[in-house]
Amino acid sequence: MARLRARLAAAAERDGVLDIAYRIVDSPVGSLLVAATEQGLVRVAYAREDHDAVLQHLADKISPRILHAPDRLDAAAHELDEYFAGTRRDFDIPLDWRLSAGFRSTVLHHLQEIGYGRTASYAAVAALVGNPRAVRAVGTACATNPLPVVVPCHRVVRSDGGMGGYLGGAEAKHFLLALEAAA
């Protein structure tokens, strides 16, 4: 079955009918679905998001031509492995930003400015993007981040020092912050 899937993925890639490739990556925060288009990584999803629902959303928003094609995501999987091993601080893989737009996209693009091992409050991020009153909108942007871990929304915390919410759950956010603090 694995050989058949590999042949199917190779044929789809060769014939130009593979718009989104995906694979599942095991990590210390659970299984992550990673998906990419020709432009780059388009989605990272925690298991709690329901991987089947995420794939359906990608089919609805981008293209129904989705295939489990793990080889196309080797670089992303390798960078995630390095990150979780504590040997990578920044991701170099190209990103496809099409699942975020407007103010949310602006916020997500600025999250890279929060350095590894550091945090910033939702209010500080709102000020960083030039709209200091948009604290809740920053929270919404983080909550709908299509590229968690890679785009570090886990580094955004509450002004009172509390963790705040996280798409991957409180345990995952705590783990990521502890991982980065240990470096």
Score class of each variant (00 low, 15 high):
residue 6 A to K: 13
residue 9 A to V: 01
residue 12 A to W: 03
residue 14 R to D: 08
residue 14 R to C: 04
residue 15 D to Q: 15
residue 15 D to T: 11
residue 18 L to P: 01
residue 19 D to I: 03
residue 24 I to G: 02
residue 24 I to V: 15
residue 25 V to C: 13
residue 25 V to T: 11
residue 31 S to C: 02
residue 34 V to D: 07
residue 34 V to R: 10
residue 35 A to N: 04
residue 39 Q to G: 02
residue 40 G to T: 03
residue 42 V to C: 05
residue 42 V to Q: 02
residue 43 R to N: 09
residue 43 R to W: 02
residue 44 V to L: 06
residue 47 A to I: 01
residue 50 D to I: 01
residue 52 D to Y: 09
residue 64 P to L: 07
residue 64 P to A: 14
residue 65 R to S: 11
residue 66 I to C: 04
residue 68 H to V: 05
residue 68 H to M: 11
residue 70 P to K: 03
residue 72 R to W: 11
residue 74 D to P: 00
residue 74 D to G: 00
residue 76 A to V: 10
residue 77 A to I: 01
residue 80 L to Y: 03
residue 82 E to M: 10
residue 83 Y to A: 03
residue 84 F to C: 06
residue 89 R to I: 06
residue 89 R to L: 10
residue 90 D to A: 10
residue 93 I to F: 14
residue 94 P to F: 04
residue 94 P to C: 08
residue 96 D to A: 07
residue 97 W to T: 02
residue 99 L to Y: 04
residue 100 S to Y: 07
residue 101 A to M: 05
residue 102 G to L: 00
residue 102 G to A: 05
residue 102 G to Y: 03
residue 103 F to I: 00
residue 107 V to C: 04
residue 109 H to K: 13
residue 109 H to I: 01
residue 109 H to A: 10
residue 113 E to C: 00
residue 114 I to T: 11
residue 117 G to Q: 10
residue 120 A to S: 12
residue 121 S to C: 10
residue 122 Y to A: 15
residue 124 A to H: 02
residue 129 V to Y: 13
residue 129 V to K: 14
